[in-house]
């Protein structure tokens, strides 16, 4: 099967950080949430996919093709949104669009104008005068206006207020109604993904913790609450991460059957959110 995005054993070494053995696959028509704490290696992975930095090992295939050998062809089919504004600040929206549009073979002016109108953006406004949310909307408008088959987004909702965040997510929700489009979405705000993601890849300290369907992830993990008297050297092993207070403990497990067998009804078991999974896995 041809995956939209296939990353195998990816490695990148820096002085103080190594991205090691990163592997995951994204099928056409799905959204993959790429989660992890700050500094986990999310942006580095995205930069490697976009060939902005060079890998030390491994393989990246986009639309089934090597991302360097077929770079131009691949990038023509990718829409990208980065965490910060990297556009020329002195230019207006229209000027920046004119520059970007000339590089894409399937640039759709009608589509761009639709989004500009929809997002309430003034084409004559200089990019430096836009708020962070408006800049993000402009990036999205560009990413969605050349019939891209894969949208890659690096922390698009980071630093946005809840209203803007919701708006951005609603836009993405509309985009995925088109089954042919796939989205690779990195974020540390995991609640953004609860609604829209099909797959979750969790990365921490440069390594993939898991890459699974979201429903499977949420089914596999559970939050366990109980008194600290239940914890000893053996029972602690059942938890991926633990938070202890004077009144009790809260822990994340991926082995619910064992927990039920050991603690019985002495503990309270709740569904874990993606945030719980990320926080407790990092705390390990």
């Amino acid at each position: 099967m041809d995956y939209v995005l296939e990353v195998n054993s990816l490695r990148k070494e820096f002085k103080n950080f190594t991205l090691d053995n990163i592997s995951f696959k994204l099928e056409p028509g799905y959204i993959m949430g790429f989660i992890g704490p700050n500094g986990a290696g999310k942006s580095t992975t995205i930069k490697l996919i976009m060939n902005l930095i060079k890998k030390n090992g491994g393989e990246i295939k986009v639309f089934g093709k090597d991302h360097i050998k077929y770079e131009k062809e691949i990038k023509d089919r990718i829409g990208f949104v980065y965490d910060e504004n990297y556009y020329y600040e002195d230019l207006t929206i229209k000027q920046m669009k004119d520059i970007v549009a000339s590089f894409y073979s399937k640039w759709d002016e009608h589509q761009f104008n639709y989004y500009i109108h929809e997002f309430d953006l003034n084409p004559k406004a200089k990019i430096k005068t836009l708020s962070k949310g408006m800049k993000m909307k402009f990036s999205l408008a560009v990413a969605l206006s050349h019939h891209a088959d894969l949208i890659i987004m690096d922390e698009p909702t980071s630093g946005l207020d809840p209203v803007f965040r919701r708006e951005i997510l609603d836009i993405l929700y509309n985009v995925i109604q088109d089954d042919s489009k796939s989205i690779f979405f990195s974020t540390h705000i995991t609640t953004d993904l609860e609604k829209i993601a099909d797959y979750i890849t969790f990365i921490n300290e440069g390594k993939v913790v898991f890459s699974k369907p979201k429903d499977e992830v949420l089914e596999n993990y559970a939050l366990v609450k109980g008194g600290t008297d239940l914890l000893d050297r053996e029972t602690r092993k059942e938890f991926i991460g633990l938070r202890e207070t004077k009144v009790g403990f809260e822990g994340l497990t991926d082995n619910l059957d064992n927990v039920k067998r050991i603690f019985g009804d002495k503990v309270l078991i709740e569904k874990a959110t993606l945030e719980d999974i990320m926080v407790y896995s990092v705390r390990r």
């Binding site: 902005l52 990038k75 990718i78 990208f80 980065y82 910060e84 990297y86 020329y88």
Partner: peptide, 17 residues
């Protein structure tokens, strides 16, 4: 502007080798 500034990320993400 391009090679030195942050805009290089945008230009290098466009379909041009």
């Amino acid at each position: 502007y391009d090679i030195s500034g942050r805009t290089r990320y945008i230009m290098s993400s466009l379909p041009i080798s």
